[in-house]
Amino acid sequence: MTISVYVPAALSLLLAAISRIVVVRTAPTRAAAFVVAAMLCAAAATWGLVLLSATLLGATSLVADEALERGVQLQDPVPKLIGVTAVLLLILGAARVARVLRARRATTRELQAVCSSCGNGELAVVALDAPHAFAVPGHPGRILVTRGLLSVLDGDERRVVLAHERAHLRSRHHWLRAATEICAAVNPLLIPVREAVAFLVERSADEHAAAVTGSRELVARALTKAALASPAAGRVPLWPAALRFAGCAVSARVAALHSAPPRPEPLVPSGVLALGVATTIAAVQATIAFYQLIYWLWPT
Protein backbone atom coordinates (compact mmCIF):
# COMPACT_ATOMS: atom_id res chain seq x y z
CA MET A 1 0.00 0.00 0.00
CA THR A 2 1.32 3.42 -0.86
CA ILE A 3 2.06 6.23 1.51
CA SER A 4 -1.15 7.99 0.38
CA VAL A 5 -3.22 6.15 2.98
CA TYR A 6 -1.38 8.02 5.72
CA VAL A 7 -1.60 11.42 4.02
CA PRO A 8 -5.05 12.36 5.44
CA ALA A 9 -3.66 12.07 8.97
CA ALA A 10 -0.72 14.32 8.10
CA LEU A 11 -3.00 16.85 6.39
CA SER A 12 -5.39 16.78 9.38
CA LEU A 13 -2.47 17.78 11.58
CA LEU A 14 -1.61 20.56 9.14
CA LEU A 15 -5.21 21.78 9.05
CA ALA A 16 -5.28 21.75 12.86
CA ALA A 17 -2.05 23.76 13.04
CA ILE A 18 -3.33 26.28 10.48
CA SER A 19 -6.64 26.62 12.35
CA ARG A 20 -4.81 27.49 15.55
CA ILE A 21 -2.68 30.12 13.82
CA VAL A 22 -5.18 31.88 11.56
CA VAL A 23 -8.41 31.63 13.57
CA VAL A 24 -8.09 35.01 15.28
CA ARG A 25 -7.40 36.76 11.97
CA THR A 26 -10.00 34.98 9.86
CA ALA A 27 -13.20 36.79 8.90
CA PRO A 28 -15.87 35.08 11.05
CA THR A 29 -18.13 34.47 8.07
CA ARG A 30 -15.56 32.02 6.71
CA ALA A 31 -16.28 29.34 9.33
CA ALA A 32 -17.92 27.19 6.65
CA ALA A 33 -14.57 26.70 4.86
CA PHE A 34 -13.13 25.13 8.01
CA VAL A 35 -16.21 22.94 8.39
CA VAL A 36 -15.97 21.63 4.83
CA ALA A 37 -12.22 21.01 5.11
CA ALA A 38 -12.70 19.20 8.44
CA MET A 39 -15.43 17.03 6.93
CA LEU A 40 -13.23 16.07 3.98
CA CYS A 41 -10.29 15.33 6.29
CA ALA A 42 -12.42 13.24 8.64
CA ALA A 43 -13.98 11.30 5.77
CA ALA A 44 -10.60 10.66 4.09
CA ALA A 45 -8.96 9.60 7.35
CA THR A 46 -11.82 7.23 8.15
CA TRP A 47 -11.68 5.73 4.67
CA GLY A 48 -7.91 5.28 5.11
CA LEU A 49 -8.54 3.35 8.34
CA VAL A 50 -11.12 1.20 6.56
CA LEU A 51 -8.55 0.35 3.86
CA LEU A 52 -5.86 -0.41 6.44
CA SER A 53 -8.30 -2.63 8.34
CA ALA A 54 -9.19 -4.38 5.11
CA THR A 55 -5.56 -5.46 4.61
CA LEU A 56 -6.09 -7.82 7.53
CA LEU A 57 -8.42 -9.81 5.27
CA GLY A 58 -5.33 -11.09 3.43
CA ALA A 59 -4.66 -13.29 6.45
CA THR A 60 -8.12 -14.87 6.43
CA SER A 61 -8.49 -18.31 4.93
CA LEU A 62 -11.13 -16.96 2.56
CA VAL A 63 -8.65 -14.77 0.70
CA ALA A 64 -5.60 -16.98 1.30
CA ASP A 65 -7.26 -20.10 -0.15
CA GLU A 66 -8.49 -18.17 -3.14
CA ALA A 67 -4.98 -16.86 -3.74
CA LEU A 68 -3.52 -20.35 -3.46
CA GLU A 69 -6.09 -21.69 -5.93
CA ARG A 70 -5.30 -19.04 -8.48
CA GLY A 71 -1.60 -19.12 -7.90
CA VAL A 72 -1.42 -15.49 -6.84
CA GLN A 73 1.45 -14.39 -4.64
CA LEU A 74 -0.23 -12.49 -1.76
CA GLN A 75 1.42 -9.23 -0.79
CA ASP A 76 1.45 -8.02 2.74
CA PRO A 77 1.27 -4.26 2.20
CA VAL A 78 1.19 -3.15 5.84
CA PRO A 79 2.31 -4.80 9.08
CA LYS A 80 -0.49 -6.62 10.93
CA LEU A 81 -0.02 -4.30 13.87
CA ILE A 82 -1.09 -1.30 11.78
CA GLY A 83 -4.13 -3.15 10.49
CA VAL A 84 -5.20 -4.06 14.03
CA THR A 85 -4.59 -0.49 15.22
CA ALA A 86 -6.77 0.79 12.38
CA VAL A 87 -9.61 -1.50 13.44
CA LEU A 88 -9.32 -0.29 17.03
CA LEU A 89 -9.26 3.36 15.94
CA LEU A 90 -12.40 2.82 13.86
CA ILE A 91 -14.23 1.26 16.80
CA LEU A 92 -13.11 4.06 19.14
CA GLY A 93 -14.19 6.68 16.60
CA ALA A 94 -17.63 5.12 16.23
CA ALA A 95 -18.04 5.08 20.02
CA ARG A 96 -17.04 8.75 20.25
CA VAL A 97 -19.46 9.75 17.48
CA ALA A 98 -22.27 7.94 19.27
CA ARG A 99 -21.39 9.77 22.49
CA VAL A 100 -21.29 13.17 20.79
CA LEU A 101 -24.66 12.59 19.10
CA ARG A 102 -26.22 11.42 22.36
CA ALA A 103 -24.85 14.40 24.28
CA ARG A 104 -26.08 16.86 21.64
CA ARG A 105 -29.56 15.39 21.51
CA ALA A 106 -29.90 15.20 25.29
CA THR A 107 -28.64 18.76 25.81
CA THR A 108 -30.89 20.22 23.13
CA ARG A 109 -33.86 18.38 24.56
CA GLU A 110 -33.14 19.63 28.07
CA LEU A 111 -32.70 23.21 26.86
CA GLN A 112 -36.02 22.96 25.03
CA ALA A 113 -37.63 21.61 28.20
CA VAL A 114 -36.35 24.59 30.20
CA CYS A 115 -37.70 26.93 27.51
CA SER A 116 -41.14 25.37 27.54
CA SER A 117 -41.24 25.76 31.32
CA CYS A 118 -40.76 29.50 30.73
CA GLY A 119 -43.76 30.40 28.59
CA ASN A 120 -43.92 30.41 24.82
CA GLY A 121 -42.40 33.71 23.65
CA GLU A 122 -39.15 34.03 21.73
CA LEU A 123 -37.35 34.86 24.96
CA ALA A 124 -37.30 32.41 27.86
CA VAL A 125 -35.98 33.70 31.19
CA VAL A 126 -34.90 31.44 34.04
CA ALA A 127 -34.80 32.85 37.55
CA LEU A 128 -31.16 31.96 38.26
CA ASP A 129 -28.39 34.29 39.38
CA ALA A 130 -25.61 32.70 37.33
CA PRO A 131 -25.29 34.66 34.07
CA HIS A 132 -26.00 32.46 31.05
CA ALA A 133 -27.46 32.87 27.58
CA PHE A 134 -28.11 30.14 25.05
CA ALA A 135 -29.52 29.90 21.57
CA VAL A 136 -31.85 26.90 21.63
CA PRO A 137 -32.42 25.42 18.18
CA GLY A 138 -35.92 24.16 17.44
CA HIS A 139 -39.11 25.09 15.63
CA PRO A 140 -39.06 27.94 16.28
CA GLY A 141 -35.62 28.51 17.81
CA ARG A 142 -35.67 30.28 21.17
CA ILE A 143 -33.37 32.37 23.31
CA LEU A 144 -32.79 31.20 26.86
CA VAL A 145 -31.23 33.60 29.36
CA THR A 146 -30.94 33.74 33.11
CA ARG A 147 -32.18 36.67 35.16
CA GLY A 148 -28.63 36.95 36.48
CA LEU A 149 -27.34 37.91 33.04
CA LEU A 150 -30.18 40.36 32.33
CA SER A 151 -29.66 42.18 35.61
CA VAL A 152 -25.94 42.89 35.13
CA LEU A 153 -26.57 44.49 31.71
CA ASP A 154 -28.29 47.71 30.68
CA GLY A 155 -30.95 47.96 27.96
CA ASP A 156 -28.48 48.38 25.07
CA GLU A 157 -26.33 45.52 26.32
CA ARG A 158 -29.36 43.25 26.65
CA ARG A 159 -30.14 44.02 23.02
CA VAL A 160 -26.63 42.78 22.16
CA VAL A 161 -27.31 39.43 23.84
CA LEU A 162 -30.61 39.04 21.98
CA ALA A 163 -29.06 39.97 18.62
CA HIS A 164 -26.12 37.63 19.25
CA GLU A 165 -28.33 34.64 20.02
CA ARG A 166 -30.68 35.46 17.15
CA ALA A 167 -27.67 35.40 14.81
CA HIS A 168 -26.82 31.87 16.03
CA LEU A 169 -30.37 30.73 15.37
CA ARG A 170 -30.79 32.47 12.03
CA SER A 171 -27.45 31.27 10.63
CA ARG A 172 -28.00 27.76 12.05
CA HIS A 173 -24.62 27.77 13.74
CA HIS A 174 -25.51 24.64 15.67
CA TRP A 175 -25.17 22.65 12.45
CA LEU A 176 -21.67 23.97 11.83
CA ARG A 177 -20.71 23.09 15.38
CA ALA A 178 -22.34 19.66 15.25
CA ALA A 179 -20.52 18.85 12.00
CA THR A 180 -17.10 19.74 13.41
CA GLU A 181 -17.84 17.94 16.69
CA ILE A 182 -18.52 14.77 14.74
CA CYS A 183 -15.36 15.30 12.65
CA ALA A 184 -13.28 15.70 15.81
CA ALA A 185 -14.89 12.59 17.30
CA VAL A 186 -14.00 10.57 14.19
CA ASN A 187 -10.53 12.08 13.96
CA PRO A 188 -9.22 13.65 17.19
CA LEU A 189 -6.43 15.34 15.24
CA LEU A 190 -9.16 17.77 14.14
CA ILE A 191 -10.02 18.95 17.66
CA PRO A 192 -8.32 22.34 17.08
CA VAL A 193 -10.49 22.80 13.98
CA ARG A 194 -13.59 22.17 16.09
CA GLU A 195 -12.40 24.84 18.54
CA ALA A 196 -11.66 27.22 15.68
CA VAL A 197 -15.17 26.82 14.28
CA ALA A 198 -16.70 27.27 17.75
CA PHE A 199 -14.73 30.51 18.05
CA LEU A 200 -15.62 31.72 14.55
CA VAL A 201 -19.37 31.23 15.00
CA GLU A 202 -19.19 33.24 18.23
CA ARG A 203 -17.26 35.97 16.39
CA SER A 204 -19.80 35.86 13.59
CA ALA A 205 -22.67 36.34 16.05
CA ASP A 206 -20.73 39.17 17.74
CA GLU A 207 -20.27 41.00 14.44
CA HIS A 208 -23.93 40.46 13.61
CA ALA A 209 -24.91 41.95 16.97
CA ALA A 210 -22.59 44.88 16.25
CA ALA A 211 -24.29 45.45 12.90
CA VAL A 212 -27.76 45.29 14.49
CA THR A 213 -26.96 47.60 17.41
CA GLY A 214 -24.65 49.79 15.36
CA SER A 215 -21.76 49.68 17.82
CA ARG A 216 -18.89 47.23 18.16
CA GLU A 217 -17.85 48.96 21.39
CA LEU A 218 -21.24 48.17 22.85
CA VAL A 219 -20.93 44.47 21.96
CA ALA A 220 -17.45 44.36 23.52
CA ARG A 221 -18.81 45.94 26.71
CA ALA A 222 -21.75 43.54 26.97
CA LEU A 223 -19.46 40.58 26.43
CA THR A 224 -16.97 41.81 29.02
CA LYS A 225 -19.64 42.42 31.64
CA ALA A 226 -21.23 39.01 31.04
CA ALA A 227 -17.89 37.23 31.26
CA LEU A 228 -16.81 39.08 34.42
CA ALA A 229 -20.12 38.32 36.11
CA SER A 230 -19.60 34.61 35.51
CA PRO A 231 -19.33 32.80 38.85
CA ALA A 232 -16.41 30.71 37.59
CA ALA A 233 -14.28 33.80 36.97
CA GLY A 234 -10.96 33.41 38.72
CA ARG A 235 -11.29 29.69 39.29
CA VAL A 236 -8.44 27.63 37.91
CA PRO A 237 -9.91 25.23 35.37
CA LEU A 238 -9.62 21.52 36.10
CA TRP A 239 -8.42 20.73 32.59
CA PRO A 240 -6.20 23.68 31.71
CA ALA A 241 -5.28 22.46 28.22
CA ALA A 242 -8.84 21.64 27.22
CA LEU A 243 -10.36 24.81 28.61
CA ARG A 244 -7.65 27.25 27.66
CA PHE A 245 -9.19 28.04 24.33
CA ALA A 246 -12.66 28.49 25.79
CA GLY A 247 -11.21 30.69 28.51
CA CYS A 248 -9.27 32.97 26.22
CA ALA A 249 -12.07 33.06 23.67
CA VAL A 250 -13.91 35.91 25.41
CA SER A 251 -10.86 38.14 25.65
CA ALA A 252 -9.95 37.30 22.04
CA ARG A 253 -13.48 38.21 20.96
CA VAL A 254 -13.38 41.46 22.93
CA ALA A 255 -9.97 42.28 21.45
CA ALA A 256 -11.29 41.57 17.94
CA LEU A 257 -14.23 43.90 18.54
CA HIS A 258 -11.88 46.64 19.71
CA SER A 259 -9.77 46.36 16.55
CA ALA A 260 -10.75 47.13 12.96
CA PRO A 261 -13.75 45.27 11.49
CA PRO A 262 -12.74 42.02 9.78
CA ARG A 263 -12.15 42.15 6.05
CA PRO A 264 -12.99 39.06 4.07
CA GLU A 265 -9.72 37.78 2.62
CA PRO A 266 -10.01 34.91 0.15
CA LEU A 267 -6.59 33.41 0.91
CA VAL A 268 -7.39 31.64 4.20
CA PRO A 269 -10.63 29.91 3.14
CA SER A 270 -9.17 28.83 -0.21
CA GLY A 271 -6.04 27.50 1.49
CA VAL A 272 -8.13 25.59 4.00
CA LEU A 273 -10.37 24.20 1.28
CA ALA A 274 -7.32 23.20 -0.80
CA LEU A 275 -6.17 21.09 2.15
CA GLY A 276 -9.54 19.34 2.19
CA VAL A 277 -9.29 18.65 -1.54
CA ALA A 278 -5.73 17.33 -1.11
CA THR A 279 -6.89 14.79 1.50
CA THR A 280 -9.64 13.66 -0.84
CA ILE A 281 -7.13 13.12 -3.64
CA ALA A 282 -4.90 11.14 -1.26
CA ALA A 283 -7.89 8.99 -0.28
CA VAL A 284 -8.63 8.28 -3.95
CA GLN A 285 -4.99 7.31 -4.56
CA ALA A 286 -5.02 5.01 -1.55
CA THR A 287 -8.19 3.40 -2.89
CA ILE A 288 -6.55 2.81 -6.28
CA ALA A 289 -3.50 1.29 -4.58
CA PHE A 290 -5.74 -0.98 -2.54
CA TYR A 291 -7.66 -2.02 -5.63
CA GLN A 292 -4.40 -3.00 -7.32
CA LEU A 293 -3.74 -5.36 -4.41
CA ILE A 294 -7.03 -7.19 -4.75
CA TYR A 295 -8.15 -6.81 -8.35
CA TRP A 296 -7.35 -10.48 -9.05
CA LEU A 297 -10.20 -11.46 -6.69
CA TRP A 298 -12.70 -10.42 -9.35
CA PRO A 299 -13.47 -13.06 -11.93
CA THR A 300 -12.15 -12.02 -15.33
Binding site: R99, A133, F134, A226, A227, C248, V250
Partner: peptide
Protein backbone atom coordinates in the same frame (compact mmCIF):
# COMPACT_ATOMS: atom_id res chain seq x y z
CA UNK B 1 -37.28 25.78 35.00
CA UNK B 2 -34.59 26.73 37.52
CA UNK B 3 -34.17 23.11 38.59
CA UNK B 4 -33.98 21.89 35.00
CA UNK B 5 -31.41 24.55 34.23
CA UNK B 6 -29.32 23.76 37.30
CA UNK B 7 -29.31 20.10 36.31
CA UNK B 8 -28.28 21.02 32.79
CA UNK B 9 -25.40 23.20 33.97
CA UNK B 10 -24.05 20.56 36.32
CA UNK B 11 -23.70 17.89 33.66
CA UNK B 12 -20.32 16.44 32.76
CA UNK B 13 -17.72 17.81 30.40
CA UNK B 14 -19.14 16.03 27.34
CA UNK B 15 -22.48 17.68 27.80
CA UNK B 16 -20.99 21.05 28.68
CA UNK B 17 -19.10 21.07 25.39
CA UNK B 18 -22.39 21.08 23.50
CA UNK B 19 -23.67 24.25 25.13
CA UNK B 20 -23.13 27.29 22.96
CA UNK B 21 -22.47 29.95 25.54
CA UNK B 22 -22.64 33.70 25.19
CA UNK B 23 -19.65 34.12 27.49
CA UNK B 24 -17.55 31.36 28.94
CA UNK B 25 -15.84 31.30 32.31
CA UNK B 26 -12.53 33.07 32.53
CA UNK B 27 -9.08 32.37 33.82
CA UNK B 28 -7.67 34.79 36.39
CA UNK B 29 -5.45 36.38 33.78
CA UNK B 30 -8.26 36.85 31.25
Amino acid sequence: AAEQMQALLSRGRNRQAVLQRFATSLSVED
